[in-house]
């Protein structure tokens, strides 16, 4: 009996040691694999695959979705694919977005702009902020959201700037002056944070091809986080002076990263003069 017990004990120990050995080898393999995957300097692996959903929506103590995170436009949680498709916020074939319903005078004004005019008028070419809502609609740089109990703090890598939105449903400032981000106030509508924005500087465009707006523009943004890895942005733009009716975007996908934001100061912009020279070349009398 004793001998059987001893044998069984030895066997159990052996199995245990064997199991530990297996774990050790597996651990070493995992570590080695991680070591292999660890990028050398200058060999960052490009992010090409859409992220999985990643689990349920994180929530704050008061039960609201927690929108906090570093978000990249598109579905891969980063840059760098061999094509720009993965940074697309939506599939235009699956969910086509309607064109803005311009009033005839606005459509004519935009129609009179050349391609160079579009470039010369773009905020990005002039190193100006994209403002609301182009900061979300047309921005390849990440945005870090920090959600506190009653604020959404938006840190933009592009131009290293920020927006702070009160989320307690307070009214707008009385007769606010225009700013690039606009005067914003937000409230929760179920699981959506609804940001209401007015008084947006008229230098901002809503796309890259001339969609200007008036001082009457009213923007309603909706942010939701359907799962751990995804943030969805949708916006309605009302502008009784420029549009015939309100325009609503399709839902735009942003995906989660754990990277730090980089610094981005526009300190060496030569593009306005480059485009101006292209315009002058185009309009110069031919010899």
């Amino acid at each position: 009996m004793e001998r059987i017990k001893t044998t069984r004990l030895k066997l159990a120990c052996a199995r245990g040691v064997f199991a530990l050995a297996i774990l050790a080898v597996a651990g070493a393999s995992v570590a080695a694999a991680q070591e292999e995957k660890k990028p050398e300097a200058g060999s960052v692996q490009p992010k090409q695959q859409p992220l999985p959903k990643g689990g349920p929506t994180p929530r704050t103590a008061d039960g609201h979705p927690d929108l906090s995170g570093v978000w990249f436009p598109g579905t891969t949680g980063g840059y760098s694919t061999s094509s720009s498709a993965a940074q697309r916020q939506f599939d235009a074939k699956a969910t086509p977005e309607e064109k803005p319903p311009f009033q005839p005078w606005a459509a004519a004004k935009i129609g009179s702009m050349s391609r160079v005019d579009f470039e010369l008028g773009r905020a990005s070419v002039n190193c100006q902020p994209r403002g609301t809502p182009l900061n979300f609609l047309g921005n390849p740089y990440p945005i870090k959201l920090v959600q506190t109990r009653d604020e959404l703090i938006e840190l933009n890598e592009l131009n290293t700037n920020f927006r702070v939105v009160h989320t307690d449903g307070r009214p707008h400032s009385k007769d606010p002056d225009p700013t690039f981000n606009g005067d914003a106030t937000a409230h929760w509508d179920g699981d959506a944070l609804v940001i209401d924005v007015i008084a947006i500087d008229e230098r901002t465009w809503n796309n890259f091809v001339g969609w200007f707006h008036s001082d009457q523009e009213h923007v309603i943004e909706r942010l939701t986080r359907p799962s751990e890895n995804y943030l969805v942005y949708q916006v309605t733009i009302e502008d009784p002076k420029v549009l015939t009716k309100p325009w609503t975007s399709v839902p735009r996908q942003w995906s989660l990263s754990h990277e730090d934001l980089e610094e981005y100061y526009c300190t060496n912009n030569v593009e306005p003069q480059e485009y101006q020279s292209i315009k002058e070349k185009a309009t110069a009398p031919s010899k």
Binding site: G74, T81, S82, A85, Q87, R88, P140, F208, Y275
Partner: peptide, 11 residues
Amino acid sequence: FMAAPAFPHHT
């Protein structure tokens, strides 16, 4: 190594 923005700074 890739660097490809989807919303280009300029056209």
